[in-house]
Design a protein around this nucleic acid. Structure first.
Length: 273
DNA sequence: TATAGTGTTATCGG
DNA sequence: ACCGATAACACTAT
């Protein structure tokens, strides 16, 4: 399921396979996924146009068009992009994550662009929390996690009494980090996920920034967030890869959270490095 | 059959 | 109005 690395992969698939093709058909009849538009609005805006570029900020994608509005795509919890071309040729833009969908299975297509050449771009999304909209608002998103400056990052993860994990997940503060990346970053940085933002030290900010850059880079390189070392240890018998301590878990910032109880200590006075 | 879930957002209380 | 916590959303997989 999509966090920044998965969304970037989807964006690259669109860029590689869906640009410069004339839109000849649009299925925008799923009013939940295409809210707040009415059925036919997106269709009318895109028919006859081509996608000219595919962009991403955090987990939000948008495609420029030749003269029409931008097409915004958000994958939600379970969405993926599939390009289906004539002759059965298919690119599964979510092939690297679990939940094996069989080629040719379009049961959960929630939005479809049909091209004049017979190919299609589909948003396949069983859980239906993905979203398609024209000219999606981007101003509420913080800086993308791949390009955020050290100064902006420090602002994003500090302040307030909310747990630092909540700050990492807050797309207004920094865009692209999801529940799994957040656990990986906090583990790499040896920071307890529940520590209040206003108690985070400068040294912790530095480690969190290094963890963010390293985690995002390796997930992009290795094929998604489940390739990250700590993610495979999110299970009852999971152990910390560094010290072998049994991983512990709980709910922090409203999300299931796993951490190493030996290294990610809550009280400030116990932080030793 | 009951529950959890890799995301976002409206709503509520302080 | 701001901040933070929680419920709701829709639906599948376990």
């Amino acid at each position: 399921m999509p966090e920044l690395p998965e969304v970037e992969f989807a964006r690259s698939v669109i860029e590689r396979a869906a640009l410069d093709r004339v839109v000849a058909e649009v299925d925008d009849t799923d009013t939940y996924v295409c809210r707040p538009h009415r059925p036919g609005d997106i269709r009318a805006a895109l028919l006859g146009h081509r996608l000219t570029a595919a962009h991403r900020r955090g987990k939000t994608m948008w495609c420029d068009t030749d003269g029409g509005p931008a097409l915004g795509i958000h994958l939600g919890m379970s969405g993926k992009i599939v390009i289906a071309d004539p002759g059965g040729h298919e690119i599964d833009g979510g092939d690297y994550w679990e939940g094996r969908r069989k080629p040719g299975d379009y049961r959960w297509a929630r939005f479809t662009l049909g091209f004049a050449d017979g190919g299609r771009l589909l948003l396949v999304d069983p859980r239906r929390l993905g979203r398609i909209r024209l000219d999606p608002p981007l101003d509420a998103l913080g800086p993308d996690a791949t390009v955020i400056t050290a100064e902006a990052f420090a602002r994003a993860v500090t302040g307030g009494t909310a747990p630092v994990k909540g700050h990492l997940l807050d797309q207004h503060r920094i865009a692209g980090i999801g529940n799994l990346l957040a656990d990986e970053i906090l583990w790499q940085a040896r920071v307890h996920p529940g520590r209040p933002g206003d108690e985070i030290t400068a040294a912790e900010v530095d480690r969190l920034l290094a963890g963010t850059r390293a985690a995002v880079r390796s997930a992009l390189r290795d094929g998604g967030v489940h390739t990250l070392p700590i993610i495979a240890r999110r299970r009852a018998d999971g152990r910390c890869p560094r010290d072998g301590a049994p991983m512990t878990h709980g709910t922090i910032a409203g999300r299931t959270t796993w951490w190493c109880p030996a290294e990610q200590l809550f009280p400030l006075q116990h932080i030793t490095q």
